[in-house]
Write a protein that binds this DNA or RNA. Structure first.
Length: 213
DNA sequence: TCGACTATTTGTT
DNA sequence: AACAAATAGTCGA
């Protein structure tokens, strides 16, 4: 009964080493959502489905077209290479229909945080001209349907604690380490990796709003 | 310096 | 009305 029309889609699953990744791909070959690498296939599937912001009528795997299957495979392979430390560009066609305007602004900023850098929730709030909305930013980032592709693991707390992560703090630490961001034993990132709001704003004006505003 | 705690704050369900 | 991956402040050890 939602305002949003449902789309037809499929869950593609694949292995990354011992782990599983699930990707929801719609009929137009756009990525609706993906899971983080999980220990079981079911866990990954459940997470990917729960992160989808668009209502999806899921079809059987046997009904997947080769094109849809290819998108799923490319996402899994891309994330797999990423976790191996390769500097791959994770650029995919995304279904952004379910994003609220606030999430669009927040994720647009998160999208431009470069590899090897972090920014805090408050800085993002500042950049979207809503300086006191840091907590709401956390709320929005927590529902990011495309973890790793939209690098929400690069968002940390203003006191340099790394903050929370849907995929677990170990995963967040691992991702940051892969990108060359040092995390101390106490779970702090070094200030040298920290992007100030002014620099973040410059990056946004250069790269544009990936998800609109 | 560090934790524990408080008031304040905003978008979403 | 309640929640969340927050923040800035205080206080005591």
């Amino acid at each position: 009964m939602g305002v949003l029309a449902a789309v037809n889609g499929f869950v593609y699953t694949g292995r990354i080493g011992e782990l599983w990744l699930a990707v929801v791909v719609d009929e137009k070959e756009r990525v609706v959502s993906l899971s983080l690498p999980r220990r079981s296939e079911k866990e990954a599937v459940d997470e990917a489905k729960s992160l989808a912001l668009v209502p999806v009528n899921y079809g059987f795997r046997s009904e997947m077209t080769p094109f849809i299957r290819r998108v799923g495979r490319e996402v899994v392979e891309g994330v797999g290479l990423y976790l191996k430390g390769e500097d791959v560009k994770l650029e995919f066609d995304l279904n952004t229909d379910g994003l609220t305007s606030f999430m669009r602004r927040v994720l647009s900023v998160v999208y431009v945080i470069p590899r090897g850098f972090v920014a805090c929730y408050g800085s993002i709030a500042e950049v979207i001209n809503n300086p006191r909305a840091s907590r709401a930013v956390g709320n929005a980032v927590a529902r990011n349907p495309w973890p790793i592709i939209v690098p929400c693991h690069r968002v940390v707390r203003s006191d340099f604690n790394i903050g929370g992560y849907r995929g677990g703090l170990d995963m967040k630490r691992k991702l940051l380490k892969i990108e060359g961001v040092a995390v101390t034993a106490r779970g702090r990132v070094l200030a040298s990796h920290y992007l100030r709001a002014s620099r973040l704003r410059e990056l946004v004006s250069k790269r544009g709003l990936r998800f609109g505003g």
